[in-house]
Amino acid sequence: MKPQSRASRPNIPAGVAVTIWLVIVGLPLYVLVSSTLQSREAYLRDGPLSLPTEITFDSYRRVLDSGFPTYLFNTVLVTVAVAALVILLAVTVSYAIVRNRSRFSRQLFQVFLLGLAIPAQAVIIPIYMIIIELDLYDTLLAIILPTAAFSLPVSVLILVGSMRDIDEELYESMSLDGASQTRTLLQLVVPLSRAGISTVGVFSALNAWNGFLFPLILTQSADTRVLTLGLYDYVGEFRVDIPALLAAVVLSIVPIFIAYLFARRQLINGLMGVGGK
């Protein structure tokens, strides 16, 4: 009898570790979804780990009948604006850093890298004062601008690495054809940096979608409220509507999860190219 090959032997420790990991990840997801399918009375009576005896969508109905559609619209608007602004600025800045090898461009790149070390919490008071001076308080623009600014350092780092991977001979070919810098950027750099641009778009969109600090400090009215603040509508002084709260969480996850499914391959490819040449 042939001895069992090492490749076909069961890896029991790995199987146990994977099972534990699945339980750790799957249990919160189960509680999240099952709680939204119970009534408030059933949730309080049976607890979050019980199987729903009577499935009901009242929690989702209560969420959709509240201000959730407005919060969703504001969040989508902020997310799209931040992603577009970050892509526009990061692409042009990264191209200038890669193609201009002067001392100034290197120092500019270092300034952007320095932004990675500055947390938003440390500068929230100056940002608040600037927003007040610009008369932007309690507007969506007050969320968009600082969110985009804090997404730029990582975005520039990713795109600089991606653009440095472009062969120098391609730049020279464009130059010999008489292409301007704008044409080179649009016809050569942008098509060959699609993976990095997709990564930047997804990263900045996630930052905007999950942002909490800037909406909390820089907005006030319900008309400018986003999803992360809208969840507080289901938290009262003396009670918490947990099924409705978790239903709002599920509904807020779905759009960004769908976007991730479409962009996951480009996101992985872009992150793999961060190091550059």
Rank of each mutant, 00 (worst) to 15 (best):
Met1Lys: 14
Lys2Trp: 01
Pro3Arg: 13
Gln4Trp: 00
Ser5Cys: 12
Arg6Met: 09
Ala7His: 04
Pro13Thr: 06
Pro13Arg: 05
Val18His: 00
Thr19Pro: 00
Trp21Ile: 09
Trp21Pro: 00
Leu22His: 04
Pro28Asn: 04
Leu29Met: 14
Tyr30Pro: 02
Tyr30Ile: 11
Ser35His: 07
Ser35Gly: 06
Ser35Ala: 14
Ser39Met: 08
Ser39Lys: 06
Arg40Leu: 09
Ala42Trp: 01
Ala42Thr: 11
Arg45Pro: 00
Gly47Val: 08
Leu49Ser: 07
Pro52Arg: 12
Asp58Ala: 15
Arg61Glu: 12
Arg61Trp: 06
Arg62Asp: 11
Asp65Ser: 13
Pro69Arg: 03
Phe73Glu: 14
Val76Met: 10
Leu77Phe: 12
Leu77Asn: 04
Thr79Ser: 07
Val80Lys: 02
Ala81Tyr: 05
Val82Pro: 00
Ala90Leu: 02
Val93Arg: 01
Ala96Phe: 14
Asn100Ala: 10
Arg101Met: 04
Ser105Gln: 12
Ala117Gly: 05
Gln121Gly: 06
Val123Glu: 04
Pro126Leu: 08
Met129Glu: 11
Glu133Ser: 14
Tyr137Asn: 07
Thr139Arg: 07
Leu140His: 14
Ile143Cys: 02
Leu145Glu: 02
Pro146Thr: 09
Phe150Leu: 05
Pro153Phe: 05
Val156Asn: 00
Val156Met: 00
Leu157Tyr: 11
Leu159Arg: 05
Ser162Ala: 11
Ser162Gln: 12
Met163Ala: 07
Glu168Thr: 12
Leu170Ile: 13
Tyr171Arg: 10
Ser173Asn: 03
Met174Trp: 10
Ser175Trp: 12
Asp177Ser: 14
Asp177Pro: 02
Gly178Met: 11
Ser180Arg: 08
Leu188Asn: 07
Leu188Val: 11
Val190Phe: 01
Leu192Thr: 09
Ile197Leu: 12
Ala205Asn: 09
Gly211Asp: 15
Pro215Glu: 08
Ile217His: 00
Thr219Lys: 03
Thr219Ile: 09
Ser221Trp: 12
Ala222Glu: 15
Asp233Lys: 04
Asp233Arg: 06
Val235Met: 14
Gly236Asn: 09
Glu237Asn: 15
Phe238His: 15
Val240Glu: 03
Asp241Asn: 08
Pro243Ile: 07
Leu245Met: 13
Leu245Gln: 09
Leu246Pro: 01
Ala248Ser: 13
Val249His: 05
Ile258Lys: 03
Ile258Cys: 10
Leu261Tyr: 06
Arg265Val: 12
Gly270Pro: 03
Met272Trp: 01
